[in-house]
């Protein structure tokens, strides 16, 4: 690194290097975000003027009889959606990562195949699973029948008790590659001599994993958790593709992303409402920011001490 702190003025080439990117980023990411947050404190009048509304939109979102059930429902569903990812996606991702570490070409092939669904568009994945689970096509019932469990089949996507869980598991199926690859890179980054020393001491593979490797990948698990949190509270595409903007049946698969879309653009008879849309987005922002800050200040600090 070249130390330029003693220069009185910022050298011109630094401006040339940073300004173009920073400008586009500020103009199309930061300013619209601030503008959205600002709009959540306004309403629009009949003639499209902005009127200051204080916390009125938020009060409406939390307690109005039209908005509150949708908001609290979407928030609850979003936590269910997130919990399923944490309980299913990330543990299996860790298992697969642990199994992928080792020698041999075969492991490379598995790594490539297991990551494949992650690179496909959510729209494609959503439709594929809609077809596979469709009672019309009969692939899922046929397979269950083949193993003698035919009576267990239900149109899972169409029932309000199971739609959310089904959609969550499909999302897990698609994105399992992300925790897998991140944890895999963390695992192969562990120095060989550490593991070898444990082997010489007669440690079992099970103990080596849990006593040595697992504590060393804890920081990465934290990253995985926060990435999952951000992605889940920002999710939209899969549910929009499989269940439409109304996130049926009876809003049972509605999450913050679909609520945001409906509030902003409207649905069926209800007109879109940009300021209420901005309010839902502001709530998503607060939730995501709270998750990120909790990670940075609570988790990351505590886990640093484990590092070598």
């Amino acid at each position: 690194m070249l130390d330029l702190r003693r220069n009185k003025r910022l050298p011109f080439f630094i401006v040339v290097f940073i300004a173009p990117g920073a400008l586009i980023y500020s103009l199309f990411m930061i300013l619209p975000l601030l503008d959205s947050l600002r709009l959540s404190f306004f309403t629009t009048s009949q003639d499209n003027r902005e009127l200051w509304n204080g916390l009125g939109n938020y009060a409406r979102l939390f307690s109005d009889s039209d908005w509150a059930p949708r908001f609290w429902g979407a928030l609850r569903n979003n936590f269910v959606f997130f919990s399923i990812h944490m309980l299913v996606q990330n543990p299996i991702g860790l298992l697969l990562a642990a199994l992928l570490v080792g020698k041999g070409r075969a492991r490379g092939v598995y790594r490539t195949l297991l990551f494949l669904p992650t690179v496909l568009s959510v729209v494609i994945i959503g439709f594929i699973w809609q077809l596979i689970l469709s009672p019309l096509w009969g692939v899922a019932p046929g397979m269950l029948k083949a193993v003698g469990l035919g009576s267990l089949f239900r149109p899972w996507l169409g029932l309000s008790q199971t739609a959310l869980i089904t959609v969550s598991l499909i999302s897990v199926w698609q994105f399992i590659g992300i925790p897998m690859i991140l944890l895999y890179t963390a695992l192969i980054g562990i120095p060989d001599d550490l593991v070898e020393a444990a082997v010489v001491d007669g440690c079992s593979p099970w103990n080596i994993f849990w006593r040595i490797k697992f504590p060393l990948v804890l920081p990465t698990l934290g990253v995985v958790a926060v990435l999952t949190f951000v992605a889940n509270f920002n999710a939209f595409d899969l549910i929009y593709t499989m269940k439409g903007a109304l996130a049926g049946p009876d809003f049972s698969s509605d999450i913050m992303g679909t609520l945001f879309y409906r509030s902003f653009f409207g649905q069926q008879l209800q007109l879109g409402n940009p300021t209420m849309g901005a309010t839902v987005a502001a709530m998503m922002f607060l939730i995501i920011a709270a998750g990120v800050l909790a990670y940075l200040f609570l988790w990351q600090r505590r886990v640093q001490s484990y590092q070598l």
């Binding site: 103009l27 199309f28 975000l33 503008d35 959205s36 709009l39």
Partner: peptide, 18 residues
């Protein structure tokens, strides 16, 4: 780095206006 953690989608209302 804000943009790594905060999804750009949250600014959609502002982006569409812009």
């Amino acid at each position: 780095a804000i943009g790594i953690m905060i999804p750009i989608r949250l600014g959609t209302v502002g982006i569409l206006r812009l």
